[in-house]
């Protein structure tokens, strides 16, 4: 009776075990069918908003519908690992970033390497930045560095281990021979809560974290010490660059399209051209402003080189932290 009950129950499950199959497609003039963009983050996040901003503009220029598929998990690694397994037909691409394409593959169990993908085109970037609470004794980046050099024990946080903000600060600390204790958070906002509660002394995060924290009259609970860009950032013109603050350092979090390795060159070229035109359009700049993104076009080859360069600077940091071999 027990067994029979179990079998009947199990039979009910069979109704669930239906997995959708993706139809294979014939190749002629690109694009001849809809383009899928895999967003390896959930709806509503920065990566999703970026993709949804690009989709209509690219639809116009490529002349084909674009479908956005959100496949979140493990800070972008799940969606990209699944993307790497797909047919490189040129009709499925995904959104990668500095941390997911350069850092994650160096770490334990990512399910892909940068070579699993063809780089297509880089889209935008956001400079890294460092902030403290408004009542913090550290008025400038120099104050903070001096305190760390004199052996003061400080905690800091960023949006998760192996994320862009975490790596950006870890690289900066390592380059200047500084040590501070990293306290983990699951998102930039959680790290901001830790900064305000006093649990951590400084915060590392992309520039877009800061403008919403500053009231119209310029008052804020936080003080942004510096941004790691070549010139002052248009959205926070009063904040010095790291170089101006005396510490030459450049680091941005960037986003770009990748596809499964072996994509037709024709597809890469067509998407690259459409992105270039989109980023050059003045009305598109207004849309980027809403989310504090900078246009940061790079071709497939430049983006590949960028990944290699960042891997070189991330590797010692990750080894130091015991995250890579």
């Amino acid at each position: 009776m027990q067994l029979k009950d179990f079998l009947t129950g199990a039979a009910a499950l069979a109704g669930l075990a239906i997995v959708a199959a993706t139809p294979a497609a014939a190749q002629d003039d690109y694009p001849s069918q809809p383009l899928q963009i895999i967003v390896p983050f959930g709806q509503g996040g920065a990566t999703d908003q970026l993709s949804r901003m690009f989709a209509p503009a690219l639809e116009d220029r490529l002349g084909t519908p674009i479908v956005i598929i959100n496949q979140p998990g493990a800070g972008g690694a799940v969606g990209l690992a699944n993307l790497a397994l797909l047919e490189p037909d040129g009709y499925t691409i995904g959104v990668g970033s500095d941390s997911t394409l350069a850092a994650r593959p160096l770490m334990d169990s990512s399910g892909y390497t940068p070579e699993s993908f063809d780089t297509v085109v880089r889209l935008v970037d956001i400079p890294s930045g460092i902030a403290v609470r408004a009542d913090s004794p550290y008025e400038t980046l120099d104050d903070l560095v001096t305190a760390l050099q004199s052996g003061e024990r400080l905690n800091w946080s960023g949006s998760g281990i192996g994320s862009g903000p975490h790596l950006a600060m870890a690289v900066f600390l390592a380059q200047n021979d500084l040590t501070a204790t990293y306290v983990n958070s699951n998102s930039g906002q959680e790290a901001m809560v830790k900064l305000l509660s006093g649990e951590v002394d400084f915060f590392s995060g992309g520039g877009s974290n800061y403008p919403p924290m500053i009231d119209d009259d310029g008052s804020s609970d936080i003080r942004v010490l510096a941004l790691a860009a070549e010139e002052r950032w248009q959205y926070l013109p009063d904040v010095p660059t790291f170089t101006e603050a005396g510490y030459p350092y450049l680091r941005s979090q960037w986003f770009g399209f990748v596809g499964p390795a072996g994509m037709p060159q024709e597809a890469i070229d067509a998407i690259t051209e459409a992105v270039r035109e989109t980023l050059e359009a003045p009305e598109f700049q207004d849309r980027l402003d809403q989310f504090y993104f900078n246009p940061a076009f790079q071709t497939s080859e430049e983006m590949r080189a960028q990944i290699a360069e960042e891997q070189e600077s991330f590797l010692p940091i990750l080894q130091e932290a015991g995250l890579a071999e």
Partner: peptide, 8 residues
């Protein structure tokens, strides 16, 4: 992924 160290 281990939330603190990032190890699977």
């Amino acid at each position: 992924l281990d939330p603190v160290s990032g190890v699977g």
